[in-house]
Design a protein around this nucleic acid. Structure first.
Length: 409
DNA sequence: ACACACCATTGCCGTAATCA
DNA sequence: TGATTACGGCAATGGTGTGT
């Protein structure tokens, strides 16, 4: 059985080799068995390729050194030649005796090797872990870290940079460049950027392109240990980006253009289709939900199920206009996107007395029809509503309103 | 007057989604 | 495919209250 013979020492493990400390840096594999280990000296950095029997877990040897002669005696007669991978290779004469490993005294996490297979058909010990993955599998998992759309973004940013490099007679294989040179290239690259329509990129685009190149470098097969956003090595190029953003801001070109979430015509359609009718529990609730989301909605459906009847209070302003406003500090969340200065004043839902769809009137009506036994703002609609009560003494779950939001789209 | 802790607000970052 | 915006998280910032 394959798995019975392939439980390798892990990469990174410190091992003892002829009295010197080494670290395992790679496995040299044949088929699915570990045949040799590539080890690197902790003192000189020199690497070697060795068989399993030539090395021993450093923690084991250090423990072994602490044993007395008496303790050692217990193990003298035990053969610890348990390396299954040894069986898969042909040794020449004169192979050195394997290091004795005192397995019985090990703590469980230190027990790195399976028991030797002594009998011809012993009950196979199931390995604790899956079979050692191959390099392709690891790379694939690392790639799966990001979503497909992000991958596309990454490719786009890399394409831009590569295109710039080529256009300026640089080698477009930038992945292996030393950080300082890369930083220099980027410092010139960023200000050279323009959209295909020859306009300046927005701030978010610049930041996105930088992040894309960074993702590319840190992903397989390059796996570089760099961060274009944070590393000191890239400080100057990042200063360039910051400067570009500030310049854009001063020129008033950094304004993020937000789309109108829903076209006016669509709203009309929603009303005319009847989903906002105020004469049945479900559509009445739709209407109120819509009005509230439109006015107070900040961050999707967060916290909707925690809203209470008392979450909105009715007030009158100094000109006598009626409005509802939130009576509690909404969600403690930051206002993203839109410049915060525009949002400083409290949000009010004003009455539109001339409008048959007046949101204040429908909220009044809705609150009146809610079950008096329940404080939740969004209650389950009754299939067969009673004159005074259209809803059940039961708050709606978290998901239901979210689905409504999708339906509206 | 100052130092400090606490906490809400703000701005930025990186990733994902969406628009054109 | 190219470009932009949304989202969620986090750290910096700044206001406020309290103690010395």
């Amino acid at each position: 059985m394959e798995y019975a013979r392939t439980i390798p020492l892990q990469i990174g493990l410190k091992v003892d080799h002829r009295g010197q400390l080494y670290k395992i840096v790679d496995h040299h594999r044949q088929e699915h068995s570990v045949v040799q280990y590539v080890i690197q000296s902790l003192s000189s950095g020199q690497t070697k390729r060795v068989f399993r029997h030539e090395i021993c877990d450093a923690s084991v040897t250090s423990m072994f050194n602490r044993l007395t002669e008496v303790t050692i005696f217990q193990f003298v007669h035990e053969s610890s030649q348990s390396d299954d991978e040894l069986s898969s290779i042909t040794f020449t004469q004169g192979v050195p005796e394997p290091v004795v490993e005192p397995e019985p005294v090990l703590a469980p996490e230190q027990a790195l090797e399976p028991e030797p297979v002594l009998e011809p058909e012993p009950p196979l010990k199931k390995p604790r872990f899956k079979e050692m993955p191959n390099r392709e599998h690891i790379d694939m998992l690392a790639q799966a870290r990001v979503e497909k759309t992000t991958k596309q973004q990454t490719d786009w940013g890399v394409r831009l940079f590569r295109g710039w490099l080529t256009e300026n007679q640089y080698n477009d294989k930038f992945e292996e460049l030393e950080s300082s040179i890369l930083n220099d290239r980027l410092s010139f690259f960023y200000p050279s950027l323009q959209t295909k329509k020859r306009t300046d990129y927005s701030k978010s685009a610049l930041v996105g392109i930088r992040a894309a190149i960074s993702r590319h470098l840190t992903s397989p097969p390059f796996n570089r240990n760099v961060n274009l956003m944070k590393d000191n090595a890239f400080m100057t190029s990042n200063h360039v980006i910051t400067g570009m953003n500030k310049t854009l801001k001063r020129a008033g070109k950094d304004v993020t253009v937000h789309k109108k979430p829903v076209a006016e015509g669509d709203v009309q359609r929603l009303y005319s289709s009847g989903v906002f009718n105020t004469d049945s529990p479900v559509t009445q609730q739709n209407k109120v939900f819509w009005d509230l989301m439109l006015n107070f909605g900040r961050r999707g459906q967060e916290g909707l199920n925690t809203l209470k009847k008392s979450s909105f209070g009715k007030f009158k302003d100094d000109k006598g206009h009626i409005y509802y406003k939130m009576t509690y500090n909404e969600a403690n969340k930051t206002h993203h996107g839109v410049d915060s200065h525009e949002n400083r004043q409290e949000v009010r839902l004003y009455e539109k007395s001339e409008d048959i769809n007046c949101p204040v009137a429908s909220l009044d009506f809705y609150l009146y029809k809610l079950s008096p036994k329940c404080n939740a703002l969004f209650q389950q609609p009754l299939l067969y509503p009673k004159p005074n009560c259209w809803y059940v003494n039961q708050a709606m779950g978290k998901k239901i309103k979210s689905n409504d939001a999708k339906d509206f789209k």
